[in-house]
Amino acid sequence: MTVLLDVRGLNVTIGGKPVCEQLDLTIEANQSWALLGRNGAGKTTLVHQLAGLRPVEAGRIRINGHDLTELSPKARAREIGVLLQHSSRGFGASVFETVLSGRHPHLSTMAWENAEDHAIAKRAIARLGLDALSERSLDTLSGGELRRVELARLLAQETSLCLLDEPMNHLDLAYQASSLDVLYQTYVAPSRAMLMVLHDPNLAYRACDHWLILLGDGHWRAGPRDSVADPALLSLTYGHPIERIDSTHGPVFMPRTSLEGAPDNHDAAD
C-alpha cells in the first residue's frame, strides 16, 4: 500500500495542554479516517497541525515521502487540502470564483486560470449540486450552501490527502448523505485518502474504515475502526456512558440519557 501521511512521535499542545503525545499515525491510500474526541480535546488543532498550518513542536510529519516542513506553502497545498470548521463569506465573491480559487496552488504567480481550470471548477460545482448557484454571491448563500461551496473548492484543489473539520456542519440529512458519497468516491481511491473530524460515532463507523481517537489528556488510540470502536473506550473518550447495540445494519452507539425510561409526562400534563 502507498503511504500518504506518515506521522512519527508528534507532540501537539495548545495553551500548554496536551492534544497528543508521541502520536504515530500512518494514513495509506484508499483509507478513510475519522478523528473523534470530546469538545476541546484539540481535534481542530491536530487538523491544522497535520495540514502544516502550525509549526511542529516535536516529531515529524511526512506527506508522500516529503517532510511537511520542507515543502513550500504551494507545494504543500497541492498535497493536502483542508476544509476548515467555519466557512467565511469574504467580500461576496461568486460561487464560481470561490470554487475556482481552489486552483491557486497549481498556478504560477501572475497566471490566470485557464480553460482546464474552469472545467475542473465546473465539474466540482456540478458534483455538489451547485449549478444553479454558480453565479450567486457568497453573501446570499445559506450556511449549508456555503459548506457545499467549500467542499467543491476542495475538490477543485485536487490534493491527494484531504482533511475535513466537521464537514457535515450546516448540512441537512440529504446533503450529508450526498456530500459524503462525493467525498468517498473522490478520496477513497488509489493514491488518495481523507481524514474527517466527526462528532457522531455512528456516522464515523459508516463513513470511515479507520479511527483516531483523542482522549483529551494527550493519550490517543488509532487503528482499523473495529479495533477501536469499543463502547468502553468511547465512554472514556466522551466521559459519558455509551452502549454498543448490534443491529442487522451494523453497530449503533447510544449515549445513555435520563430521557430513556423517564415517565412520559405529556399525557399527564394534558
Binding site: L53, S72, R76, A77, G81, L84, S101, P105, Q157
Partner: peptide
C-alpha cells in the same frame, strides 16, 4: 503580484494558508 493571494486572504488567513499562501 499578490492579487490571487489577496482574493484568498479576503476569506480568512487560515483558509489562505491552507491554499498555499
Amino acid at each position: 503580484l499578490r492579487a490571487r493571494d489577496l482574493n484568498l486572504a479576503a476569506r480568512g488567513l487560515t483558509q489562505a494558508a491552507s491554499l498555499g499562501v
